[in-house]
Simulated scan of single mutants.
Amino acid sequence: MTTEPRPTAALLDEVLAPPSSVAARALEAAAVVSSPALLAHSRRSAALAVDLGRREGLQFDHELLFVAAALHDVGLAAPFDSHAEPFERAGAEVARVFASGAGWSAERAQRLVDVIVRHMWPAVSADLDVEGHLLERATSLDVSGVGGDDWPVELLGALVGRLPRDGFGVEFGGLVSAQAHRKPGSEAARTIRAGMRVRIAANPLDRL
């Protein structure tokens, strides 16, 4: 007996859905301060990360991963944009406050901080941090088009159709460039020096 593959629309519904009430509230919190383009990026990143983890057979904390994806860029929002701290660190500390308010332990809240900070690393080993690994890979695809062959093209097309990119690349590139200018020692500055804006402009997801 063979198992029929799940329809793409049903799979997309599943990976986009918050796995808990806390995850749903994290998405609501992100929506308060994020632009529509940044919020859609967070939602696409969550779906990509969850789908990748499942297909690669990785054991991951779905709620932790989803909350991290929902809140990973809140440090770019004006109310939380630190003058000194890298945006991922500033956003991670906002996420820590959210997690504490949601009743998470200090250890679990620290894991959330770790995942958000590490998503800006050039790479994250799954052995070190499986949720950080999945979020880094998902955001790298959505921002710069890196690693697109790791996902089925049908899923990518359906995801972009459900959550259009609508100028995300231009907006995000401008925000990260501003971070790089103000914080030259940050990971944002490293990515800009490494050609992020060129990769953003060439992202194949914008042509799906």
Rank of each mutant, 00 (worst) to 15 (best):
T3D: 10
R6L: 13
P7Y: 00
P7H: 10
A9T: 05
L11A: 04
L11T: 04
L12Y: 00
L12N: 02
D13K: 08
V15G: 01
P18W: 15
P18L: 10
R25K: 10
R25G: 02
L27N: 04
L27D: 03
A29Q: 12
A30T: 04
A31T: 01
V32M: 06
S34M: 02
P36N: 08
A37S: 07
A37N: 01
L39R: 14
A40P: 02
R43A: 03
S45Y: 02
A46R: 02
A47V: 01
D51K: 01
R54G: 03
Q59C: 12
Q59T: 09
Q59R: 04
E63I: 13
F66G: 13
V67K: 14
V67F: 13
V67I: 04
A68L: 12
A68R: 09
H72A: 07
V74F: 04
G75K: 09
G75A: 10
G75E: 00
A77C: 09
A77L: 09
A77N: 05
F80L: 10
S82E: 10
H83S: 14
H83N: 09
F87V: 12
F87L: 12
V94G: 09
A95N: 09
A99S: 09
A102W: 03
A102C: 15
A102G: 14
W104K: 14
W104E: 00
W104F: 08
W104S: 07
A106S: 14
E107Y: 00
R108P: 05
R108Q: 06
A109H: 15
Q110F: 11
Q110R: 15
L112A: 07
I116L: 06
M120R: 12
P122G: 12
P122M: 11
V124T: 00
V124R: 11
A126Y: 01
A126L: 02
A126M: 10
V130L: 14
H133G: 04
H133Q: 05
L134G: 03
L135N: 08
R137N: 03
L141R: 02
G145E: 03
G148D: 07
D149L: 08
D150V: 00
D150F: 00
D150G: 08
V153L: 11
L155R: 05
L155A: 11
A158C: 11
G161T: 02
R162C: 08
P164K: 14
P164W: 09
F168S: 00
F172T: 08
F172A: 12
G173H: 06
L175D: 11
S177G: 10
A178G: 08
A178M: 12
Q179L: 15
A180H: 13
A180V: 15
A180Y: 08
A180K: 15
R182E: 03
K183D: 14
K183I: 03
P184W: 14
S186V: 06
T191P: 05
T191C: 13
I192D: 13
A194Y: 06
G195Q: 07
G195I: 11
M196T: 04
M196R: 15
R197W: 04
R197F: 03
I200W: 12
I200P: 08
N203Q: 11
N203M: 07
R207I: 12
R207C: 12
L208R: 12
L208S: 04
